[in-house]
Nucleic acid binder design. Structure first.
Length: 461
DNA sequence: AGCACA
């Protein structure tokens, strides 16, 4: 009962302190402005701004008590009051002797970001999408994801605080571009603060965590079945059984994708036996049959996510079909069996003006001499055309140019392959003449290669 | 216009 202090809550004179209390500050007064204000009187060693319910109070701590006294004394007798941005601020000694800055980790810039993915389908966002998004700002060392009361969160580790800061500034409050998400995933907004961590501990490559600096890290046992086969991809999705038949869906189909175009694109990997195109929930899909599973695998890995046309148009999404042999009933503009001894069909395909350049789409040649996609083909060929990643985020100010840090050790399971055509005899098309398409932009791939430009027809200019 | 989220 006797514990209530007899001290008045506010006194009109206070014992000197090297900490000064400021009030009536302008909205969102910065630390810099406080330092500017105190600097004439001594060394400001600490500040705290945005204090109080109205966030218009602050504290300045001087190195020496005499400096604080000098400032108070000066303004006590000055005809000009202390001002910040023309607003009079009121000074007095603080009733504390030092500023205690309970800066949380979230306030201290660090190399690791705490990312909260907001949205009803947030947990459907794969770690690969996060990696792609954050790689636009620099090499991402590690990512861990977890569920907390705050929702679905990720820790994203960069080399340094500067890189992390540029990512934070550009991405905080923004939504992941729709084209990076599958159709079943709703809008996902990113909330980003700094994490107190400096180095994440990643034990396994899994659908929950990755260490991009250590591709030899074992894959999580939970992702491997009894046979030692991967049943879960590193993105956490179940791996479909491989098949010689690919299901291609075409996103953002601004231009007609014909059977011939598909044949040409897919023939780069080996002979295409059959193609069947059909409409599926508003889009166009196609089944593409190779004789060999390996060919389909190569085509899928190389083409997945890439666009048939420059500019983000006609983006391919590939999966393995359950089919192994398509039954083509009729050769028309939607379906074709290239194995039939139908001279007119073969002639037509081979006499197609060689849109791809000099390379004839000679099926047998490709068959006997399949393209090899070795590491040498990682050589970036499209730096000129590297799009700014953030246009899709609706950011007015251009972000720093994406740094295409090469992976020290590419993880073959998650690395997008460079376009197979890049080093072929014809040149990949450059950005330039394509009609712009608002709202569509490409994220840079981890390898630094553009993800676009499978093929560019002459008839589109 | 009066002292720092617990």
């Amino acid at each position: 009962m006797a514990s209530v202090s007899s001290q008045p809550q506010f006194r009109y004179t206070q014992p000197p302190s090297k900490v000064l209390h400021l009030r009536n500050l302008p909205w969102e007064c910065t630390e810099e402005e406080l330092i500017e204000l105190g600097k004439p009187f001594g060394k400001v060693v600490n500040t705290k701004c945005n204090v109080g319910a109205n966030r218009n109070q602050a504290f300045i701590e001087f190195a020496d008590l005499n400096q604080a006294i000098a400032m108070i004394s000066y303004y006590a007798s000055s005809s000009e009051p202390a001002q910040v941005r023309g607003k009079t601020v009121y000074l007095q000694y603080s009733n504390r002797q030092e500023i205690v800055n309970n800066k949380t980790a979230a306030d201290v810039a660090g190399n690791v970001l705490l990312v909260t993915i907001e949205g009803p389908d947030a947990r459907l966002v794969s770690i690969d999408v996060l990696h792609l998004v954050f790689s636009a700002f620099g090499f991402v060392h590690k990512i861990t994801t977890f569920e907390k009361t705050a929702g679905f969160q990720a820790l994203v580790q960069f080399s340094d605080a500067e890189t992390a800061t540029s990512a934070k500034n550009a991405l905080d409050g923004r939504s992941i571009p729709r084209y990076l998400l599958t159709e079943n995933v709703g809008p996902c907004t990113l909330r980003i603060t700094y994490s107190g961590h400096t180095d994440l501990s990643v034990k396994f490559q899994s659908h929950r965590s990755r260490d991009y600096t250590n591709p030899y890290l074992p894959v999580a046992p939970s992702a491997i079945d009894g046979s030692g086969q991967l049943t879960v991809g590193l993105d956490g999705k179940k791996l479909e059984p491989e098949s010689n038949v690919l299901l291609a869906s075409i996103e953002n189909m601004q231009y007609a994708v014909t059977l011939e175009v598909l044949h040409m694109v897919f023939s780069s990997f080996g002979p295409v036996q059959k193609i069947a195109m059909f409409d599926k929930n508003g889009g166009v899909q196609a089944l593409v049959q190779y004789p060999e599973i390996q060919t389909a695998v190569a085509a899928k890995e190389a083409l997945e996510g890439h666009c048939i046309y420059d500019g983000g148009f006609c983006k391919l999404h590939l999966s393995y079909s359950r089919h192994t042999d398509l039954s083509i009933k009729v050769n028309n503009d939607r379906s074709r069996d290239y194995t039939l001894p139908n001279v007119s069909t073969v002639t037509m395909v081979n006499s197609q003006p060689s849109i791809l350049g000099q390379q004839p789409s000679n099926v047998s040649m490709v068959t006997t001499n399949p393209p090899q996609y070795s590491g040498a083909q990682y050589a970036p060929t499209e730096q000129v055309g590297m799009p700014q990643p953030l246009a899709a985020w609706g950011v007015a100010a251009a972000p720093p140019a994406p740094q295409s840090m090469p992976m020290p050790m590419p993880m073959s399971m998650s690395m997008p392959m460079p376009m197979p055509m890049s080093n072929h005899s014809y040149m990949p098309p450059r950005y330039g003449n394509m009609p712009p398409h608002p709202g569509t932009m490409h994220m840079p791939s981890q390898s630094g290669l553009s993800q676009t430009m499978v093929y560019r027809p002459d008839h589109i200019q």
